[in-house]
Nucleic acid binder design. Sequence first.
DNA 1: TATTTTTACGTAAGTAAATACGTAACTACT
DNA 2: AGTAGTTACGTATTTACTTACGTAAAAATA
Lengths: 160, 160
Amino acid sequence: MQKNIIDELAELAIGARMKRLYESLSRDVMKIYADHHLNFETKYFTLFYLISKRGEIGIMDIAEELSLSHPGVINLAKELEKKGYIESFKPPGDNRKRSLRLSKKGLKALPEFELVWNKIYKTNKLLFAKQQHHLLKALEETEALLEKESYYKRFKKVNP
Amino acid sequence: MQKNIIDELAELAIGARMKRLYESLSRDVMKIYADHHLNFETKYFTLFYLISKRGEIGIMDIAEELSLSHPGVINLAKELEKKGYIESFKPPGDNRKRSLRLSKKGLKALPEFELVWNKIYKTNKLLFAKQQHHLLKALEETEALLEKESYYKRFKKVNP
DNA sequence: TATTTTTACGTAAGTAAATACGTAACTACT
DNA sequence: AGTAGTTACGTATTTACTTACGTAAAAATA
């Protein structure tokens, strides 16, 4: 319960705190996948979920949506393909492109994943419900403000 | 302004969102250091600050405080030492230990750093003041709750 | 005091990403 | 149709860490 320096730093080390919290959540979610006998890691979630929602989608579109570099997407996709959850194909009309979709195994496993995601969703809802300051809403607000005017610009305005 | 899948995912991709926000802030803060002609990166902040506060501190104690692995600390320290801001020495009494402290250059630069940190602090204060849901307080609350009972345990309780 | 265990540190190897760079295909323009 | 610019993707390299492992010093214990 003792505060360490990052807690004390508060406004200055907010990045470090988010990272710390993210990593702790990530580890626990991984345990949850393992408990459900799903050969899956937290880092795959957004990609797998996105593909499941879109049916099929190209590499660059994924990179855009997930704010990842395209080599990052290629690597994640390679791993998910190796695990057998997705497959790639050449969409007609553009020979540069490669698109991803769920494989048979992925489609079959999807309901199981959805069950887990549902449970995670419920857990989070309850966790946040108890809080005065809602982490998700705070994130949303901060993102929205920074989209209107970047942190850098705000900094310059505050410190001319 | 259009929502992408990570925004829609809300409670499920909260980790990804924190990461995204962290990276965007990190980039802007780096620009700020550059504008102030400080040869410094965001990632060094917690280490440099910690050393400046403690005067001197050993590798393992740093790792503990910053929630980093000790090889991580060694690497960061190596870089900060190369930049000339810190130096290491053998503290008396324990021959296994190596401790870090600010170098002359580090001590000399400290007021400049403190000026920048002060400006960042002000910027953050103003940014958060505008918000209904305070990101920092939300982080604090979440961390406190998860310290009482881990996310994993909460998950199991919610989904028996 | 001798032995075992723990602690502090360093190095090596692995991982999850990014950036940099190159090629081929498509688009726009002449 | 030919050229210039852009886009989509892949590979190579770099970065910022981590975990795994080894060694020496200190502490605990027999």
